[in-house]
């Protein structure tokens, strides 16, 4: 974390439309280097659209996006190439970079080394999510965007993956933008968060503060954080 350095990702007043429907309506977001930031909000709020716009898959109607580094996205639903092996999936993640060595990913997820020759489609959901994270890491990102890490996974698997992400962030200083419907998890592992609703940022601040906000508690934490 270089003091005073420019943010890794800066999004200003972003507007994205699908035909006549407005999916993002003036969104401001920034992520600094080595930061872990959460983006939480209900289904259809525009979280995936935001990531896709930064990734260049969707065109912005207005606004500005500045990315000072490489971004890799772990897509919602994992989206592995099911008929390819785990190792081939990982290697394709390095399409943009020159280095296609998969060993660093196996060091992070030793279990994947055992599965390297298996077809990705034959793995459990948790294993697939490991491959999806590993595949994104092969792109040597400065910013790792994870779309719905916990979707469809057992709680222990989610905890394990979350611990890995935190570890990655601490050790290599990789910034992480965690998109989650599970706000409790997101606020637990990220230092800062944005709450997005219907294409607009409704709230933002340190996770600590958002956790105590009555609106967040009512809408996302089921009021369970009341002390």
């Amino acid at each position: 974390m270089r003091e005073g350095s420019e943010p890794l990702l800066e999004i200003h007043d972003l507007v994205v439309r699908y035909g006549v429907a407005t999916a993002l309506d003036g969104v401001d977001i920034s992520v600094r280097r080595a930061e872990m930031v959460a983006l939480v909000g209900p289904n259809g709020a525009g979280k995936t659209t935001l990531l896709d716009t930064v990734s260049g898959l969707v065109a912005a109607a207005a606004g500005r996006i500045q990315l000072r580094g490489r971004l890799a996205q772990v897509p919602e639903g994992r989206r592995l190439f099911p008929e390819m092996t785990v190792e081939d999936n990982l290697r394709l993640g390095a399409w943009r970079v020159r280095d296609r060595r998969v060993d660093p990913v196996y060091e992070l997820f030793p279990h994947l080394a055992e599965l390297r020759r298996r077809k990705a489609g034959s793995l459990s959901c948790g294993e697939q999510q490991m491959v999806a994270v590993g595949r994104a890491l092969m792109g040597q990102p400065d910013l790792l965007a994870v779309d719905e890490l916990s979707l469809g996974l057992a709680p222990q698997v989610v905890d394990m993956l979350a611990a890995h992400l935190q570890d990655l962030n601490r050790r290599s200083g990789m910034a992480i933008l965690l998109v989650e419907q599970n706000a409790r998890l997101a606020l637990d592992i990220c230092s800062r968060a944005y709450v997005i609703e219907a294409g607009r940022i409704a709230l933002t601040g340190p996770s600590e503060q958002l956790r105590r906000s009555p609106e967040v508690q009512a809408a996302y934490l089921g009021g369970a954080y009341e002390e």
Binding site: S55, R79, L92, W95, R100, G139
Partner: peptide
């Protein structure tokens, strides 16, 4: 081959392939 695998990736999942930068 790496190029051939990228082609296969496009036929398997276009969205994922695009996210890899293909």
């Amino acid at each position: 081959t790496y190029l051939g695998m990228a082609l296969t990736a496009c036929s398997s999942d276009q969205r994922a392939a695009r996210l890899m930068g293909i």
